[in-house]
Design a binder for these strands. Sequence first.
DNA 1: GGAATAAATTTGTAAATCAAATTAAATCAG
DNA 2: CTGATTTAATTTGATTTACAAATTTATTCC
Lengths: 395, 395
Amino acid sequence: MSGQQRLEGRRALLAEIRRAGRIPRIDLAERTGISRATVTTITADLLREGLIEEVARESGSRATGRGRPKVDLKIRGAARLIAGAKVSRQSVSMVLLDFEGTQLADLEVTLDRAVHAPEDFADMLGGCLDRLAASIGRQRSEISGFGVGIAGVVDAPRGFVYWSPSLDRRNIRLGPIMRDRIGMPVHVDNDANLVAVAEKSFGLGQDHSDFIVVTIEAGVGMGIVIGNELYRGTRGCGAEFGHTKVHLDGALCRCGQRGCLEAYVADYALLREATYAGGADYDLEGLLAAARAGEPLALSILQRAGRMFAMGLANLVNIFDPELIILAGEQMRFDHLYAEEVIAAMREQIVQVDRDPPEVVVHEWGDLMWARGAAGYALEQVSEAAVAGEDADAA
Amino acid sequence: MSGQQRLEGRRALLAEIRRAGRIPRIDLAERTGISRATVTTITADLLREGLIEEVARESGSRATGRGRPKVDLKIRGAARLIAGAKVSRQSVSMVLLDFEGTQLADLEVTLDRAVHAPEDFADMLGGCLDRLAASIGRQRSEISGFGVGIAGVVDAPRGFVYWSPSLDRRNIRLGPIMRDRIGMPVHVDNDANLVAVAEKSFGLGQDHSDFIVVTIEAGVGMGIVIGNELYRGTRGCGAEFGHTKVHLDGALCRCGQRGCLEAYVADYALLREATYAGGADYDLEGLLAAARAGEPLALSILQRAGRMFAMGLANLVNIFDPELIILAGEQMRFDHLYAEEVIAAMREQIVQVDRDPPEVVVHEWGDLMWARGAAGYALEQVSEAAVAGEDADAA
DNA sequence: GGAATAAATTTGTAAATCAAATTAAATCAG
DNA sequence: CTGATTTAATTTGATTTACAAATTTATTCC
């Protein structure tokens, strides 16, 4: 339906409309550098294909002034249905988005086991998709793409999982397996990468081209955005911030190596140290409470974790020089890592030049946001397919 | 002379010709996906503009077989003249390249001072350019671009120097100042970045899209190539590998901070430790010799440096997942860092998946190669200007 | 010397972009 | 209420561009 040169323009315009939310044609022409004539032609195509729609002007400039009024264009939400899932040890969180990125439904499922065979994994998620779609009166077959976030080491473009704590074997072509079983394009990625996608698509990274997201859950993860694109390393094995070494021959990590950052800041690391040194049998809440109460041992443990974390962050800054670092995590229980003194310590350890250090912001959110990141990744892919004219026709 | 769409094709073809060295039109069409007709048209333009030239077939397939023989195209060296300089504490190394990247002349100048006012710095280098050009019977005014590598923190796109040990003040718009004084486009960058450019343009990185170059001189530097492009960070302050922290509150570094990698592996760090611990008044050669002779103290010092270096490298791999790491340096005196056991230690500290670890190669070279990197950077810029039709006419 | 082969060029056509002209939809002035 | 004014959007016509197909060119083989 559309030639080859056209693709570039279509992509640019759809991206700009998505970025802007609502925008009239004349501004599109201005911002993309594409002539008004071509903007008219291309947007007419996109309108006919149902990917965008016209809406009455409302935002901001209400008093329009004279002249023919602008007509805003926006992404047509109903154009596609997109699903995303984040799989953790005990649960699956899912969301269903429309083509605009608006959340239509969500679902939380508790798992009876943590480790799955790939086929069972696919079927289980397929079942969840059915329920998710049914909850708003739709069908699984109406969904155009499915993004899946999973812990472990993933080569996203190939959908290949080197290793994941959720799978019972290594080196699985999970993407293709799931696509065949579920009957739609499935896009798998490391969960921390998907948080970066979520921040880029829906969150604090929308206006930044280069930033880093650090996630703290059971382990420590990272996603890197360079030049508005997620950087995944040559074969998807990068961004393993948690296994960055902060001490030569240091504390033993779950991964079997020594001195990993994770071995100083993760839950199990804190508890291990508390038990080992104090004798008192803390759980995590207890340890945090004790620290808040000023108990010296607990305080010392958390402080060391904070200093190690600051050092790891400083290394990231010294290597990447990002505009922004987003610390993303669910709980208040990582207060000790997000504390102002930790950030200050980081600032002291970066290369000093006459320039503002990178902004550091804390963004707290829950499991659903991880799932939204996964859906955001699928949305990117579906959007590209749609703009390229693979007419997986509208709903 | 050429429209707007054409630019993309021109760029692609010139880049492919540069990459290939010599290549017939039909292969260009195949590799770039541009039709043979268009390849003919565009290469005809480039020929007319003098940027490329036809050469008789010779390389490889001598026995041509039947049919009209292929005619190789190559970059026309005479099209432009490009200069590059690396400024160190005591000296300046310069090279003059032709448009093909062939070295036409070089120059080494000893400096009577290490720190310069920006204007003097420009004039001094301008004088060197005169001598360099004169040495092959050309004039400064015939040079189309000048790349300058300098130690310190540089924002290359702006030509802005936050700080450099070679300049007597901070925060200088060195690029524009030099352009105005020298009368040609001047492109300034951090010297370690330029080694990465040299490897990408002329060295071991030619066939890799993502790699890291680590340089060891007095300090430790790094250049990062991502997606065939040098990554410079948001404002040019990234890639400070030497000031990556490898020990919490560790050894004191020249930069005033503690625990920097540099404070464990740089010359001064080794000597400091030897003096402090041994009493014996080593110089660097003596220390290395002692280690080779099996002297325990010397051995222990170098071994620790090696282990710290391995840890730093492992962190880079865990963050970037590059295809390739190039260790670039002048002297054999860094043998202890390039040793197989150091590389092996690095391999043990990266995240383990069923995949080959990144290749690590050692590339020894001298000061002139840094200057070639600077020239390579200028060559990129001049090449872009030429292909975009800024007819800074040929020689 | 002609058939065969393969590279490179030319030719004619379809696609796409853009500037300029035109149309559309509003406000404002009297 | 009517016509001038203003600005957005569309249409028109010319130009650029890329390409497939046909043709030309340069070589080897028999």
